[in-house]
Amino acid sequence: MPPTDLTSPAEPVPGKAAPGKAAGALPGGGGAASARTPCGITFEQVVKRFGDNVVLDHLDFAVGAGERVTLIGPSGSGKTTILRLLMTLERPDGGVIRVGDDPLWHMERGGKLVKAGEKHLHEMRKRIGMVFQQFNLFPNMNVLRNLTEGPVHVLGLSRDEAVERARGLLELVGLADKEDAHPTRLSGGQQQRVAIARALAMEPTVLLLDEVTSALDPELVVGVQDLLRDIARSTDVTMLCVTHEMGFARDISDRVLMFDQGRIIEEGPPGTIFEEPREERTRAFLRAVLAS
């Protein structure tokens, strides 16, 4: 789906609501998903260490605006760290990350990049949403409050607007009848669908999906995957996805990045990576994953 306007794709357009777009694509999904122009992402020489362990070693890569990219690779290869750096949950030890044209962790001052403060991070986080492996719904709020809390207190929507948006999203994720339910009363799959709706309610231009189906019972995986496929098809949000579900990766992504030890060892469209991988380590990894 092409962006609806021709401003620079990296320029977020705050407050530009286009509910018709998503609603048209998704039956019943009023005002769903991103209404903003998507942002690209660039990593420039990014380093992240945990103690002596170098997780990301001068990593360079870019994701285009509206592109869907899946990160695969053995655990400990730094995929989740990339998402956590983007969500500002971890601080990089070196290099520059950009979301859109703007550096995430830095500010430009006099042509130089300096470390940014909390205010800048707050601005940048408006562009980014994340769905977690363990859902991380707030147990002190019912389902509806989970979805409205951010829009009301962060985006400044009125309660009515937020509730309307939340109800549209709950319908999109197929849980319209659960708005009063308590998160702990839902199945894992339902919780994860609420968590996806909660992230979308903030209208991010970049959506980070961190192994969103790995905590689910096998029979619940498909529902969540179908939902994400719908969202990918009907919106132009930039998606960065870490997963071990290769079928899902193939369906959803424009491009797959294969990670090993903090570096990208191979990349390409899913067809190429999964059918004819060049690297022996990619082949070994795919064999291991498919066997399990």
């Binding site: 500002t88 994340m130 707030f138 809390e149 903030m202």
Partner: peptide, 20 residues
């Protein structure tokens, strides 16, 4: 994880404390 989820919703430090 609760702190992280609140951070991902862009809550300020005070909102994270008070609401979550």
């Amino acid at each position: 994880a609760q702190w992280e989820a609140a951070c991902a919703l862009n809550f300020t430090a005070a909102q994270r404390m008070r609401r979550v």
